[in-house]
């Protein structure tokens, strides 16, 4: 079987995920939990990178998309989980994740369409407001458990699921951006006016970026819900979005490999530094400022912006 570079890595990553998952019975559960969280954060960061990095929009609403996915997926498995047999559980889980992603993509569409007329600061604030609106809606909806949220969610997110989906996300985003169609994302980022002069429709690219990015954020939310087993609206506040934004900035906007590395780093480091949790967010914010002053292109790239891997 002949496979292109990216596809070979995808198959390899999926195999590793499956192998580790099969042997997970004998592994330390704490480490497995952290590893699953790494996978989820990789999904979030890579999907946000499509919007913020490659397409050059600035979204602060990733926490909101994640919330939509988490709630929809969790509600689905809570309602149908009892009725299906054990054999169909993975199928139900996959269906719930896709449904969560789909719902988040719809939300992404709702944010993406206003973004047609806005840019920069305004867009950041509108996405922020959308995230808050989504949170307020969940907080007040009895169907989704209002302020207490949903609990008793089945613990179906294993290492294999989380890393498998993460590998898939990386693959889809890379394949998309490196396709002929996907060059348009970079063109819109580089110069919107020039891109439209070349016959590309910047509006279409922006909305597509929001759709795809939000879809994967929703899937990550579904995985998150089935890992934590209980979710509430406060878990998806503005800080969640900021966490993801920091990963993208640290990794370098539009640099998938760097963003994956940053996501791993920023998930593992806080675990190692649990004793200093007071200072975690202070360190984050200082990191943002210093990075912007000294290395606006992120930690893992030499210079400039553009279409590098």
């Amino acid at each position: 079987m002949r496979l292109g570079g990216a596809r070979r890595w995808l198959v390899l990553a999926l195999l590793v995920a499956a192998a580790v998952s099969a042997g997970s019975g004998v592994m330390n559960r704490y480490y497995l939990g952290v590893a699953s969280e790494v996978g989820i954060n990789v999904i979030l960061a890579v999907s946000l990178n499509l919007i913020n990095g490659y397409t050059g929009q600035f979204s602060l609403g990733h926490g909101g998309f994640m919330a939509v996915g988490a709630y929809v997926a969790a509600k689905m498995t809570l309602v149908f989980g009892e009725q299906v047999g054990a054999a169909f559980q993975p199928l139900l889980f996959a269906g719930a994740l896709v449904a969560g992603g789909g719902a988040a993509a719809l939300a992404g569409l709702a944010v993406g369409v206003p973004s047609l007329r806005l840019r920069g600061d305004y867009l950041a604030v509108v996405t922020l407001c959308f995230g808050e609106i989504i949170r307020v809606v969940f907080q007040n909806s009895a169907f989704f458990g209002a302020a207490t949220g949903l609990s008793g969610i089945a613990p179906w997110t294993t290492f294999g699921w989380s890393w498998g989906v993460a590998a898939l996300t990386v693959y889809v985003v890379l394949a998309l951006v490196h396709s002929t169609y996907g060059r348009g994302f970079l063109a819109v980022n580089d110069d919107e006016i020039a891109a439209s002069a070349m016959g590309l429709n910047p509006l279409k690219y922006k909305v597509t970026a929001f759709l795809v990015g939000a879809f994967f954020a929703g899937v990550a939310g579904g995985l998150f819900a089935h890992m934590k087993r209980a979710i509430n609206p406060e878990g998806f506040n503005f800080m969640r979005s900021i966490d993801v934004v920091v990963m993208v900035i640290l990794g370098g906007m539009g640099n998938t490999a760097g963003v994956v590395a940053a996501a791993v780093l920023l998930t593992v480091l806080p675990e190692l530094l649990r004793g200093f949790s007071d200072c975690r967010m202070i360190a984050y914010s200082l990191l943002i400022i210093v990075l912007m002053l000294l290395r606006p292109q992120g930690l893992f790239r030499r210079s400039g912006k553009g279409g590098g891997l």
Partner: peptide, 13 residues
Amino acid sequence: LTVLITAIGVSLL
């Protein structure tokens, strides 16, 4: 965008 992100960083700090 760089300035905007810095401003968010200052706010968080």
